[in-house]
């Protein structure tokens, strides 16, 4: 079976199943399912501008965090901390953008991106060290680091990084030089999306075409076999997965600031780092499929806005439908596995 196509088909089937359930619920709630879904599609794909400016813009942070999670999970590193790494990256990027006394985009952009990646990696390094040195499970540590990052962000935007007027809990707007240029004229789609695609392709090439990627997959499949049959230590590979994953998640945070919001504030992310887990799992941890699943989630989110605006569906419903999608995906995914795995061996 074509391994890249499978997740795409899975996503489609899950979506269809969800839409059926959602339609029934919407009808019960007094909304016309047809009008609601038309609004959803219009919101996500209605015009080129909506697709680029809404769907893809919303997909960008999910794409980057989804890639971060996919890479880590591939190495059996259960990084639940993309949310915190995202905040760390955003803070570092903003700090460098505001404090750096240089105004050439050619210098500022690489410097801020590097700072964000480094901060994300640093945030992941703590759980990495605890796992490799002390054997502390990363599920707990990465999760706890999220809270630390979110509180740190709150503190910084109320204090050291607060806008000079000191009125609102947010940073100043970042200088023009630090903002990501538009990817397409007259859209809000910024360079960050392209960067996400580039990282996706790079990760895919790395995982499937290089010895290092093979080692990473091997550690993910069986650390013991990697050591005995592959004759290499799992530790450095685990570190690499942690740091790279953290760096990509860190980029996600700064790219959101540099491409969309242009300043940092409390509650920058509505939980992208967690949604990313669904994005990555739905893509079966394949980086190229993550591009697709991130766009699906972005479309759902953008369409959700239109469902409110045009069909009067409350926000809670929109979130409920998103949750339905994830459930449906897991169900469909599982049943496919059962269907495909009927055989046995002698």
């Amino acid at each position: 079976m074509n391994r890249t196509l499978t997740p795409v088909l899975t996503a489609t089937a899950a979506l269809a199943a969800t839409l059926a359930v959602a339609a029934a619920l919407l009808a019960l709630g007094g909304h016309s399912p047809g009008a609601v879904f038309a609004a959803l599609l219009r919101g996500a794909f209605g015009t080129w501008d909506r697709f680029f400016s809404f769907t893809l813009v919303r997909a960008t942070p999910l794409l980057l965090t989804g890639l971060a999670v996919a890479l880590a999970f591939k190495a059996r590193v259960w990084n639940i901390g993309a949310e915190g790494q995202l905040h760390a990256g955003a803070l570092a990027g903003v700090a460098v953008a505001i404090l750096l006394p240089v105004h050439s985009p050619l210098l500022v952009l690489p410097a801020t991106l590097a700072a964000a990646a480094a901060a994300g990696a640093l945030w992941a390094a703590v759980p990495a060290a605890m796992k490799t040195r002390m054997g502390v499970g990363e599920v707990i540590t990465t999760l706890l680091m999220n809270f630390v990052a979110v509180f740190l962000a709150q503190f910084l935007v109320q204090g050291p990084l607060q806008e000079p007027r000191g009125v609102f809990n947010q940073t100043d707007e970042i200088p023009l030089a630090a903002r990501l240029p538009a990817l397409l004229p007259d859209t809000r789609l910024h360079l960050g999306f392209l960067l996400g695609i580039v990282i996706a392709v790079a990760l895919w090439l790395y995982l499937t075409r290089t010895p290092g990627g093979f080692r990473l997959r091997a550690v993910g499949a069986s650390p013991r076999a990697a050591e005995v049959s592959g004759r290499f230590r799992a530790g450095p590979v685990v570190w690499l997965a942690f740091l790279t994953s953290g760096a990509i998640a860190g980029l996600a945070g700064w790219i959101q600031v540099a491409g969309v919001t242009h300043r940092m504030y409390e509650g920058l992310s509505p939980g992208w780092g967690y949604t990313a887990i669904a994005v990555a799992l739905l893509a079966r941890l394949n980086p190229l499929a993550v591009v697709v699943t991130a766009i699906v989630f972005g479309a759902l989110s953008a369409g959700g806005g239109a469902m409110q605006r045009e069909a009067g569906v409350p926000e809670v419903w929109v979130r409920g439908i998103e949750a339905l999608v994830i459930l449906a995906v897991l169900t469909v995914d599982r049943s496919w596995q059962v269907l495909a795995g009927g055989g046995s061996r002698d």
């Binding site: 400016s53 809404f54 813009v57 919303r58 809000r188 959101q256 969309v260 919001t261 504030y265 509650g267 920058l268 992310s269 509505p270 953008a302 806005g305 409110q308 605006r309 045009e310 009067g312 409350p314 926000e315």
Partner: peptide, 14 residues
């Protein structure tokens, strides 16, 4: 018409 927005990225969009 009314929309509840979650993130500032959605403000522009809305």
């Amino acid at each position: 018409s009314h929309q509840q927005t979650r993130t500032p990225a959605e403000f522009d969009e809305a």
